[in-house]
């Protein structure tokens, strides 16, 4: 009984276990699995990442003004949906040029808001892919 009173009293002067979030920033792990980043100039357009991606968050879609790259013979453009991505980095493991063309950062995904057309914009891209 006495010890529990003593413990309860000392607990009054202890720091809380939680982080005082908006004031103190949360430390992010260096190896945290975050956004997939893409180097357009180094890409060889083999489309391996597109095939490997489990949720289909990477799409190469034919566009009118494709990025200038001699490997890009079909006139494709890379599209990435951070809200669909599960950050498993299967695409990076499938990529023949990892760290140059495709790599995983530790950045957090952006917040999806309506004005960005997170869903509708992506569905249109998927339709283009199916045609």
């Amino acid at each position: 009984m006495l010890t529990s009173f003593f413990k309860a009293f000392t607990n009054l002067f202890k720091k809380p276990q939680t982080i005082d979030y908006p004031v103190t920033s949360i430390e992010k792990d260096k190896e945290y699995r975050g956004l997939i980043e893409y180097g357009e100039s180094e890409c060889i357009y083999c489309l391996k990442c597109e095939k490997a991606c489990p949720p289909g968050a990477i799409l190469f879609v034919p566009v009118e003004n494709p990025p200038k790259n001699e490997k890009n013979k079909k006139g494709l453009k890379y599209h990435y949906n951070p809200h669909l991505c599960i950050y498993c980095s299967e695409c990076v493991r499938a990529c023949p040029k990892p760290e140059e063309a495709l790599w995983q950062s530790n950045k957090k995904p952006p917040i999806g808001i309506k004005d960005d057309k997170v869903n509708d914009g992506w569905f249109e891209l998927e339709k283009l892919k199916k045609v």
Partner: peptide, 11 residues
């Protein structure tokens, strides 16, 4: 998180 890069969905 240290090993896999995520807290819950390890993948």
């Amino acid at each position: 998180e240290l090993i896999t890069g995520n807290r819950v969905q390890f993948d």
